[in-house]
């Protein structure tokens, strides 16, 4: 099976000027992964991890400095402007803040139908009928088509963003924190919708989020990013029950509990997220990791550790960092169900 998305050695850096010093921020540093048909992969990380830069580079909304991106077997990087526009039909993106990702002066219906106009996929009455069909599929009413974005609620706006992304029937969708601006109950509606659309339209998702609970619910596989690099990758349940990288453990330990019953004594995570400005060659977690040692100052590779598991940690492979099985409560145990 050919992956719907293949990313190889993707990099993106920014030049900064701090006073008289020129420095380089390595927002995305040698990131590789793929997404298989029908799969949902979650890219999780804190602010500054580079996860959103990855999203923007994938569709070349921002030009990567290096690396290659393939949609199916066609290469997106290096494609001409005309070919890029055509390729973007097959890969779409939904943004975080639904109130900022819609044009405030265009009616909702016109915005959803716009891709059809642009790519001459339909004209006149057909645009409207396909737009209404998409509206319905995303759980909106036909009346909504004639409203402006500000007349809708946050959840409805995000449905509009989704409808606009899906109207050209892409096979792959990047979801960049699509629910983080929404309330829990609205988030639940949207997550359910995403899962239903995935089944009905045969979609693959790259779901970018800082919320591990959401990632766990929606994704089959998780990539953990820290300071521009993927530090760990693996199937969702394995990663939650047996995290291998110290950062993944830090992250999992920081998630607040689901119920007061589950409160436990634990260490407060040390330090704050690292931003990779002129980083040293070694591991980027060094300042926050309790297992940091001299060997961590050499460059670290992302290596296989068992089937479908990847880890970027020297200490893990030398056996210094112990592997701990985390007690993961099964869904029926966790909360009410």
């Amino acid at each position: 099976m050919i992956p719907v998305l293949t990313v190889r050695h993707l990099s993106r850096s920014y030049r900064l000027r701090q006073g008289w010093r020129r420095r380089t921020l390595h927002a995305v540093d040698d990131v590789s992964f793929e997404v298989m048909p029908g799969e949902t992969v979650a890219l999780v990380g804190e602010s500054g991890s580079g996860k959103s830069t990855v999203a923007r580079c994938l569709l070349r909304l921002e030009e990567p400095d290096g690396g290659r991106v393939f949609l199916g077997d066609e290469e997106l990087t290096g494609a001409s402007a005309a070919r890029l526009r055509r390729l973007r039909l097959r890969a779409q993106i939904v943004f975080q803040d639904p109130s900022e990702s819609l044009n405030p002066r265009m009616k909702v219906g016109a915005q959803i139908g716009e891709p059809l106009h642009l790519h001459r996929l339909a004209r006149g009455r057909e645009v409207r009928s396909r737009m209404l069909e998409m509206l319905d599929l995303c759980g909106l009413e036909p009346q909504h088509a004639d409203l402006y974005p500000h007349q809708l609620s946050g959840g409805q706006r995000q449905r509009v963003g989704l409808a606009r992304a899906l109207i050209t029937r892409p096979r792959f969708v990047v979801l960049d924190e699509p629910t983080s601006a929404l309330d829990v109950s609205v988030q639940a509606q949207l997550l359910n919708l995403l899962r239903r659309l995935q089944r009905e339209l045969d979609l693959s998702y790259l779901f970018i989020t800082h919320d591990l609970g959401v990632a766990r619910w929606i994704a089959q596989r998780i990539l953990v990013m820290y300071a521009g690099q993927i530090v760990e990758a693996g199937p969702t349940e394995e990663l939650f029950s047996r995290p291998l990288h110290p950062y993944t453990r830090l992250l999992l330990d920081a998630i607040p509990v689901d119920s007061p019953r589950m409160r436990r004594q634990r260490e407060s995570p040390a330090g704050e997220p690292y931003i990779a400005i002129d980083p040293a060659p070694g591991c980027r977690l060094i300042g926050r990791c309790r297992w940091a040692a001299a060997e961590c100052q050499a460059p670290v590779e992302l290596l296989d550790s068992g089937p479908r598991r990847l880890v970027r940690c020297v200490g893990h492979f030398s056996g210094r960092v112990p592997v701990v099985e985390r007690e993961v409560l099964s869904p029926s145990q966790t909360v009410m169900d």
Binding site: L61, E114, R164, A165
Partner: peptide
């Protein structure tokens, strides 16, 4: 703004 990025993502040409 994000909706301009969104407009690029759905394939709008520059003039539009």
């Amino acid at each position: 703004l994000q909706y301009v990025t969104a407009a690029r993502a759905i394939g709008n040409p520059r003039w539009r």
